[in-house]
Structure formats: C-alpha cells, structure tokens
Design a protein around this nucleic acid. Sequence first.
DNA 1: CCGCTGTTCTTGAAGATTTAACAATGCGGG
DNA 2: CCCGCATTGTTAAATCTTCAAGAACAGCGG
Lengths: 168, 168
Amino acid sequence: MDGMSTEPAAEPRWLSDEEQYAWQSYLHATTLLEDHLDRQLQRDAGMPHVYYGLLVQLSRAPRRRMRMTELAQNAKITRSRLSHAVARLEKNGWVRRENCPSDKRGQLALLTDEGLRVLEKAAPGHVAAVRGAIFDRLSPEQVGQLAEICRVMADGLQPKGADLPWLR
Amino acid sequence: MDGMSTEPAAEPRWLSDEEQYAWQSYLHATTLLEDHLDRQLQRDAGMPHVYYGLLVQLSRAPRRRMRMTELAQNAKITRSRLSHAVARLEKNGWVRRENCPSDKRGQLALLTDEGLRVLEKAAPGHVAAVRGAIFDRLSPEQVGQLAEICRVMADGLQPKGADLPWLR
DNA sequence: CCGCTGTTCTTGAAGATTTAACAATGCGGG
DNA sequence: CCCGCATTGTTAAATCTTCAAGAACAGCGG
C-alpha cells in the first residue's frame, strides 16, 4: 500500500482539453439539432420529433402495425412514454389501437390512412431539415465516421436496468 | 417547360442508404445517451442533465454569477425554460437570484455554496458516465472527428428566429 | 422629457416525460 | 390444475418544457 485505499475511486479522471472540447461541441450540436427538428415538426406537422419517429416506424412495419413493446424498443423509449404518445396520436386520428390476437395482454398500434397522409406531407420538410443540418454540411468521410462513432456509443448504452431491459 | 412548375421543390432528395444508417445510428446513440445521463444525474444528484449543466456554467463564471440571458445562451435553452429551471433550483437552495446592478431589468443567477457542494459531489459520477459512454470507447482520432463533426453541425444551427436569436 | 421600439425576464396554461404502482395475462413447474 | 413469477400495457402524480402573453426597463430620436 502506498498511502490510501478507502477512496471510492481515488481522484476521478477528468476530461482532457480535447475531450472537454469534444463533449461541449457534442452537447451544443445535439441540443440545437433536437430543438431545431422539434420546432420544424411542431410547426409543419403538429407533433414533436419523437412522435414523428413513431409514425415512421409504423409506416415501415408489415401491415402498418406493431406491438407496443416492439415499437418502444425501436424508438428507444419506455413503454409508459409510448402509451402517452399513442394516446395523443390516437386523439389526432393518426394512430389506432388494436388487440393483439395472439396475446390478450398485447396491443397493436396501427398507422391510419390519415396518419399516413400527415406523414407523407411532413416527410419532405423533415428530410430537408436533417439534410440541411447534417448531410449537406459533412463530407462523405465524415458521415461514415459519424455513423461508426454513434454505432460504438449506442452499443455501449444498451440499457439493462429497470424498465428498459431492451436487448439481451 | 417540360410538364410542371408549381411543385414546392420537385421530388425531395431522400437519404441514401449510408445516410439513413448514419441518421439512425445518430438518433439511437443520442437518445440513449441523453437518457442514460438524465437517469444517472437524477439518481445521484436529484436533477436532470440540463439543470446540472446550468450549475456547471455558474461554477465556471467569474463570481459564480451570470446574467440569465447569457446563461440561457450558453446552455442553448430559451429564457423561459431557464426561468422555470432557476425557480426550481432556487427552491432546492442551489441557486439564488440577484438584481443586476447595471441593468434594472436584469437578473443574476448565482451558485450557492450548497449548490457547489452538490455539484462537486455529483461531478465524478457524471464524468465517469460520460467517459464510459464516449471517451473510453472511442479512439483519440474518433474523438477528434466527433468534435469537428459537431462543430460543423452546431455552426449551421445557430438559431435566428423567434426567441432564440442568439449570436449575431 | 416624451414617445417609440427593443430587450430582459417572468408567468400561466397546455403538452410531454418520468416514476412508481397496478391490473391482466402468459408461462413454467409441481 | 394451481401457484409463483415474469411480461404487457396503462395510469396518476410530480416534474419538466413549450408557447404566447405581458410587465418593467433601456435606449434612441425628436
């Protein structure tokens, strides 16, 4: 022993200057982008970004239907949050609920025709916003780097606790 | 003319496969990370990530004081949101308000001693979480790439409308 | 000094999210 | 079959965010 051992983790390893700069940049970029997309979609489609993502998921699903839990997993949100979101989307007439035939506990969320129309109407503007914020400004190499970086990050974050024991 | 001209923007340019993949990865990574940090800080410090960021800003300011507007700019949030946040932090005794001497409209938010203690107590865990999610998993080159990518993104997103005419 | 316009910050209400708890059902072993 | 435990989805309450509106002051031109 050379002096101490009851420390929880000795002196925490702070971030280097480069790391601090990267972290700061990350926070600014992600905050501004999420804000930007939220406002764009709220204005053009009457819903926040997350809700839009739910409609996209449903539009890609087999019969525009998906189990609640699966939808929540894909969207990376809790089931509770999804419940509220679907309730709201249902009020708008963009989504409907259906009982799952194979599991009496289950519910299917399904995209209505009206929901599909709203989605198709909002999609171009949304893509343009994403493109304008990212893909029109980054080189193809950077896009590849971003994808790989995010993949690594997401890999390390697959929740295992509480209400989000998604994956594994 | 070859057939039409009233289109808003002809056929929108959709995302390529690489771009879709990158976008998907980005959404997953950022959603999971924000979630992770929010829970970590809520558990260990009793506040969400954004509020923690406010305390950090204040701790770095000259006399642990900052004008509301400047604080909002640095944190990339609206003044309204900041008002509510500071009200909550004030209830916790972690922040106090002070009148600005040079501008009777102005308010200073200041970090209290108790707020500083809370911050110092939570910082190691927070840094560890950030490190574990990002810097322990990325190569130094990737950290550099991420910083540059985020810098470019943030550059293109400096809001000019409505309540966020920050910068310029 | 007045009036005009812009900035600063706050507020209330509506909407969104989190957390913990709960009802209902599925599933496996005895 | 029945029990115990896990899964599915919902709900209520507390908290947080957004949006629109407004009060108070600053700064400028006349």
